[in-house]
Amino acid sequence: MGSQTSALKDHFRAGGELGINHIKLGMWFFIASEVMFFGGLIATFLNFKINSPTLEGELLDVTLVGINTFILLGSSFAVVLGLDAIRQDKPRQLAFYLGITIVLGVIFLSGQVFEFRSLAAEGLTLTSSVFGSSFFTMTSFHGLHVLIGVLWASRNFIKTLRGGYSSSTSIGIELFGIYWHFVDIVWIILFTVIYLI
């Protein structure tokens, strides 16, 4: 009975029914729900920005946030190199790239905290105006996603050091990669919508 259940589990995980990996399918459905979540926030912000323009956007520091954008792009690059490394059975390289991802994620969050503090000093807070509310809601939720990603990367880092990943068991890294790259895409859109337009 036990071996039959195990065989069924393996069959399920290998995508035996749909011809695609079920765990990855679940991850993509989660990402789709995230698209709708951030989509609602961004559409609300756009509506406000176009119909009730304010000068508060002038307080935003595009250069600082541009650097943060490079940092997040770099972290995405590190994740995809890490996945490529473990597919070649190179766990040490994976650990190295995950370490870079964690460091860059923490730097990004530090930059965001610095930006929030600077804006608060200028009088822009979550409750100061509609612009402040929508700005801090969007960027804070994105920051929360980055924080979750950093914790997930840390867990993967430890598991890698313990020999938990190989070319045949790299799905955990692939799922983390999908999540992290999605967080990067959300930032690209937020950077454009909030800071550039």
């Binding site: 290998a14 995508g15 990996n21 995809v80 490529d84 597919r87 070649q88 070319s167 799905i171 692939e174």
Partner: peptide
């Protein structure tokens, strides 16, 4: 591979270009 099941060829060069 859709399913992680062994080594695949490296795409580092592509990733560098994209980055």
């Amino acid at each position: 591979n859709n399913i992680a099941s062994g080594k695949t060829e490296s795409h580092v060069r592509t990733y560098v270009y994209v980055f």
